[in-house]
Amino acid sequence: MTSDEALDEFRSAGALLEGHFILSSGLHSPVFLQKMFVFMDPARTERVCRALAERITEAYGAVDYVVSPAIGGIVPGYETARHLGCKAIFVERDAGEFVLRRGFSIPENARVVMVEDIVTTGLSSRECLAAIGAHPGRILGAACLIDRSGGKADLGVPLVSLVQLDIPAYPADQLPPDLAAMPAVKPGSRNLTT
């Protein structure tokens, strides 16, 4: 699957939104990728995650565990792991920090890839990688469906993606006038309490 074909999956699902959005990072953007519109279609999810699994195999070789951040990374992490033929687990927040819960563990020498849905600043990915690093196993790198940082997010490990976009994102006090004139919507999940 090419990058254009992967982005077309988001467009066809109605997941490429334009307006004024507050991202999970707190930055503001004129574009939001509502990946749940992709994930609600199992066939579409299977296609993009199979393609991501192929990129992971090309970049990192065999993988034993995919670890993803909850909530947004669970579906692509699971489906990508299914295509890699490996285990899928996830980290979730406990007192604001990502940790493995639910009895999940990473065995010593396990080959691990962190799989994320969308990377913007890389904050959630770095937090997830830090949680993984607290366990035995070897982090090979990271992967995401869409890297909206244009390749600028520094995760501290290699990152492969299906699509790399350079979508602008602004601090709240540095909005361009056209964006500032629109009401902001916050569709992300970072601050959900469950």
Rank of each mutant, 00 (worst) to 15 (best):
A130L: 05
T45W: 00
G151N: 04
S29T: 08
P187S: 10
V75H: 03
L16T: 05
Y170N: 05
L162A: 07
L16Y: 15
V185D: 12
N191I: 03
D117C: 06
L7W: 13
F10T: 00
R111N: 09
P177W: 11
S29G: 09
G26L: 08
Y65D: 09
Q174P: 01
Q164W: 00
S12D: 15
A180C: 08
L23V: 00
S24T: 14
S3L: 00
A143E: 04
S68F: 01
M36N: 13
Q34E: 15
I106Q: 02
L140R: 04
E9F: 11
L123S: 14
A81C: 10
I89A: 07
T45E: 05
L100P: 08
R50Q: 14
A95V: 04
R101D: 09
L16R: 11
G188S: 11
Q34L: 02
V119K: 07
H83W: 14
R50T: 11
E5F: 04
G122L: 01
G96A: 11
G141K: 13
V163A: 13
I56W: 02
A88R: 03
L33Y: 00
I71H: 03
A43M: 13
L7I: 11
M114T: 13
E79P: 00
G137F: 03
N191M: 11
V119E: 05
A59H: 04
L145V: 12
L100D: 07
V91H: 00
P171F: 08
C128Y: 00
P176F: 09
G150M: 10
D154H: 11
Y65L: 13
P107F: 04
L192N: 14
F104L: 10
D41L: 11
T193E: 14
V99F: 04
V115G: 03
D166S: 15
T80D: 03
A172Y: 10
R50I: 01
P171I: 03
I89L: 13
D117A: 06
A153V: 12
V119W: 09
P171R: 15
T121V: 03
A172K: 15
F10C: 07
L179R: 07
G61L: 04
P177M: 09
V112F: 05
L84N: 12
G96P: 02
R11N: 08
P30Q: 05
T57N: 06
E127H: 10
E116A: 02
H135W: 07
M36W: 14
F98D: 07
A131K: 02
N191A: 13
R47I: 00
P76D: 10
S124P: 04
Q34D: 15
R190E: 14
R148P: 06
A184L: 06
G137P: 06
S189I: 02
A180S: 11
Q34M: 02
D64L: 09
